[in-house]
């Protein structure tokens, strides 16, 4: 028996491509957001409302990640925004190699902001860097205020936490202060934005933050 030292990172290929993507984004001055959440938290709805508000001022493109179907890309395409759908065919997360392939179908000239809507999942996508500038995690009030401690890695790596569906707070057992305390425990630097993508309440805080990033 003999031992061969390997000492190589399991996700080295992803990290390598993510670094490559990051340098493309920096060179082209594109601000990139990796949007993460569990399924049904309102990622696509928030994205639609956001695009409607900012598309006149900011040149935006979108990459949609889903396990199956291009329904989300169809929803985004209605806003006359360049969009490409990645179908992972069962894969539970987007990786940098998939994003690199998707970029081949997007014209990046003049684009200032790129939203990457990840596959709905609070576990796996947290480990895969896509070369983004910021990770946004969305939680909706119908999910439970204990999400941050159940999925600590996701909340630890996120920069911004959006609490969506605040219009439903009166009907659900979701305690905003417990949620904040849980999230702060995992990540004291997390920035919170509370809104309802449906009614538009709080949307201005999110749009203000977005514009400040450019």
């Amino acid at each position: 028996m003999s031992i061969i030292t390997v000492e190589r990172k399991v996700l080295e290929k992803n990290d390598e491509v993510a670094a490559e993507l990051k340098s493309i984004f920096i060179k082209r001055k594109i601000f990139v957001l990796n949007v993460l959440s569990s399924p049904g938290s309102g990622k696509t709805t928030l994205l639609e409302k956001t695009l409607k508000q900012i598309k006149e001022d900011i040149k935006v493109a979108v990459i949609e990640g889903d396990v199956q179907t291009d329904y989300d890309a169809q929803r985004i395409a209605k806003y006359k925004i360049p969009v490409v759908q990645i179908v992972t065919n069962g894969g539970c997360h987007l990786d940098a190699l998939l994003v690199r392939d998707a970029l081949k179908s997007l014209t990046l000239d003049g684009i200032q902001m790129l939203f990457i809507e990840n596959v709905g999942n609070l576990v796996c996508p947290a480990s895969y860097d896509l070369g983004e500038h910021k990770k946004i995690v969305i939680v909706s009030t119908t999910e439970g205020d204990d999400k941050p401690v159940k999925y600590p890695k996701m909340f630890r790596v996120a920069d911004v936490c959006i609490l969506n569906k605040i219009d439903l707070l009166a009907y659900v057992d979701f305690d905003v202060s417990t949620f904040h305390a849980n999230a702060k425990k995992v990540n004291p630097n997390l920035l919170f934005i509370e809104l309802s993508a449906k009614t538009g309440a709080g949307l201005e805080d999110w749009l203000k933050w977005l514009k400040e990033q450019l």
Binding site: M1, S2, I4, T5, E7, K9
Partner: peptide, 11 residues
């Protein structure tokens, strides 16, 4: 941490 440390082979 997330890496492959070593492999043991029969030589």
């Amino acid at each position: 941490e997330f890496f492959i440390k070593e492999i043991e082979v029969e030589s």
